[in-house]
Design a protein around this nucleic acid. Structure first.
Length: 619
RNA sequence: GGGGUCGUAGUUCAGUUGGUUAGAACGCCAGCCUGUCACGUUGGAGGUCGCGGGUUCGAGCCCCGUCGGCCCCGCCA
């Protein structure tokens, strides 16, 4: 037993009357009991100020030697993060000692009794520091996540998340959707992301898999006749992490029968509009729609941030027939040359354009060409745009490109040439990067849209095969059904698969893909066609999805739905770019939990019982 | 799988061309203080410079390797 624990008090029958965030001038004169953590102690000898903190706020309490000698003696022993209860009178603060920074700053508690309910070690980092840049490094805070969560910012984020989920339930309940829980222990399907697998003890050598999403199960609830389903579903994907990706995450999962795309859009819009009201944002009842093709053409992205313009401009036509070899080469291979215009940055330095060049190279672009149009000073006869392409294209061509780009004096034009997918990826990312650097994004704006008509398949260049762009139950567009049949059944027309569009869609807010979904295939013939398109034999399809194919044969209604990322939605609600800011107990970028130190070893006995032997590959 | 970047006191950081005893602020500990709220004030403690190896008379600094955090590409139906 150490020294401090000898002097701990017991709570007994004492009951808290108020939180640390609610007392105001109107409560003056009342007797109250507050409980919380010591955020700060200011000792003045004969009296002591304590900032008492709980989840609702901070209240200043005063302990005076003169009026409460015993409590004052105890207060001497208080340290940061001690847990205390104080009993006392709410008093108005003296003239000139009000604290405007505190919601409770007009009053304080004149303590008559003080209980030390628990002590605390000195925290490994300071919970309250001025400026987020002085916060302890994230790994330190993650190791002591329970302490980091005491910070008002994280308290706010986690509570906002709870409110968002509550709003989602409120919305779907009111719309006649039924919440149905689906199993966490499922069967592995080697499609898509890597599964987390769980060994079965009873069936030694067999494994469950954790859901990447409850996709098939929610479709089965439609076949079961529930008509409208939703679930706040935990999902697991064993893939590498990012600032907005964790191995386990939560999604709002919904599905509805007898619905067309517009009806699903309405629920998607309705839900987000309901949730965004939490932060006082009113999104349009009907969101703008953009086809995938148009989004890629204009923004180089299937999740464009519409809070700013800076759209991609096509220079391909203007450069047809150029004898500049790199461009001619690109055009001969069916590639394209596009640009963005950065307003007012004709003053980009060599260092800055070099940095932007390095940036686009990450996306496979060979280089970044530029034109800078200086502001003409009076009757300057030597005035001319500067360009990295001046020598190879000539002054006249540069002038033409400038005109086509729409750039004016003072602007910079950034040009990328290459394969269509590379140009889109590089310029789409560059558009966001430049907007961030130039600080042209209005953080008070919320811009949403629905991206429609995603491609049904993506081409894999390495294997020269087509893979499902969404998932293998996504319905093709009615208009593309004949094209789809031809592409699948005529091997010589296989490449047409790349042109088939799906009834798939995403909801995008401020450049974040917040939800995605599709109308599903409900007819077994079309489903069989799709498996064939993906290179699956009927036998393979049966072994993987037999139960589902069986179900499709018993009167499956037309149906569709979507899934929305809870974390990404919350990131928008609280204005963070870090997914860990909206999860109570997140993992690091290497998929570890620094607090509980997981993943960890298991006992040899446990492995034996499961019939598992671990052989770590030696190097 | 690949790339970038960071790692110095409990925390945030500084540390010059490789050169004496590695510094600052906050925090912590002890004392003083009747109105603070970033309290003030006096004094004090606190370091495996991520880890291992190498070069050198001498390494926080240079080289090689390794571990970890963050970010990005691939991946994420």
């Amino acid at each position: 037993m150490d020294f401090t624990s000898c002097m701990l008090d017991v709570l007994g029958n004492l009951e808290r009357t108020h939180t640390c965030g609610e007392l105001r001038e109107s409560s003056v004169g009342g007797q109250v009991v507050l409980m919380g953590w010591v955020a700060k102690k200011r000792d003045f000898g004969v009296f002591t100020f304590i900032d008492l903190r709980d989840r609702e706020g901070v209240t200043q309490v005063v302990v005076s030697e003169e009026t409460a000698a015993e409590a004052h003696a105890k207060a001497k022993n208080l340290r940061g993060e001690f847990v205390i209860a104080v009993k006392g009178e709410v008093v108005s603060r003296a003239e000139g000692t009000h604290n405007k920074k505190l919601a409770t700053g007009d009053i304080e508690i004149k303590v008559s009794e003080l209980l030390i309910l628990n002590d605390s070690k000195v925290p490994p980092f300071q919970l309250e520091v001025a400026g987020s840049e002085n916060l302890a490094a994230e790994d330190t805070r993650l190791k002591y996540r329970y302490l980091d969560l005491r910070r008002p910012q994280l308290q706010h984020n986690i509570r906002m998340r709870a409110k968002a989920v509550s709003k989602i339930r409120e919305y779907f309940d009111s719309r006649g959707f039924i919440e149905i829980e689906t199993p966490i222990l499922l069967k592995s399907t080697p499609e898509g992301a890597r599964d987390f697998i769980v060994p079965s003890r009873i069936h030694t050598g067999k494994f469950f898999a954790l859901p990447q999403s409850p996709q098939i199960l929610k479709q089965l609830t439609m076949i079961s006749g529930f008509d409208k389903y939703y679930q706040i579903a935990r999902c697991f994907r064993d893939e590498d992490l990012r600032a907005d990706r964790q191995p386990e995450f939560t999604q709002l999962d919904m599905e509805m029968s007898f619905a067309n795309r517009e009806q699903v859009y309405r629920e998607m819009e309705g839900m987000f509009n309901h949730v965004l009201k939490l932060i006082g944002v009113n999104l349009p009842t009907e969101w703008p729609r953009l086809t995938y093709a148009e989004a890629m053409r204009r923004f180089g992205s299937d999740k464009p941030d519409l809070r700013f313009g800076m759209e991609l401009i096509d220079l391909t036509t203007e450069l047809k027939g150029t004898d500049f070899a790199p461009f001619a080469d690109v055009l001969a291979k069916g590639g394209e040359i596009k640009c963005i215009v950065v307003k007012g940055r004709a003053d980009y330095s060599r260092k800055q354009t070099d940095e932007l060049q390095e940036f686009v190279k990450r996306y496979g672009a060979g280089s970044l060409a530029w034109i800078k149009i200086p502001v003409r000073a009076g009757s300057d006869s030597d005035w001319a745009p500067a360009s990295s392409l001046l020598k190879v294209l000539g002054e006249e061509k540069i002038a033409r490109l400038t005109e086509v780009s729409g750039a004016v004096e003072g602007d910079a034009v950034l040009i990328v040439a290459g394969k269509k997918s590379v140009v889109a990826a590089a310029l789409g990312a560059l558009r966001n990067e430049v907007a961030r650097r130039e600080n042209i994004i209005d953080r008070t704006k919320y811009k949403c849209l629905i991206v429609t008509e995603f491609p049904m398949f993506e081409h894999n260049d390495e294997t020269d095969t087509y893979v499902a762009a969404h998932h293998p139950f996504t319905s093709p567009m009615d208009e593309d059904l004949d094209l789809f049949k031809t592409a699948v059944n005529d091997p010589s027309q296989h490449h047409l698969l790349g042109q088939v569009r799906a009834k798939a869609y995403d909801a995008v807010i401020n450049g974040y893909e917040c939800a995605g979904g599709s109308i599903r295939i409900h007819q077994k013939e079309v489903q069989a066609l799709n498996f064939k398109a993906l290179g699956m034999t009927p036998e393979t399809a049966r072994s993987r999805f037999g139960f589902f194919l069986d179900a499709l044969e018993y009167g499956t209604p037309p149906h569709g739905g979507f899934a929305a990322g809870i974390e990404r939605t919350c990131m928008i609600l609280v204005g963070t770019e870090n997914i860990r800011d909206v999860m109570a107990f997140p993992k690091t970028a290497s998929a570890q939990d620094l607090m509980m130190d997981s993943p960890g070893d298991v006992d040899e006995a446990q492995l034996k019982e499961l019939g598992i032997e671990v052989s770590v590959a030696s190097e």
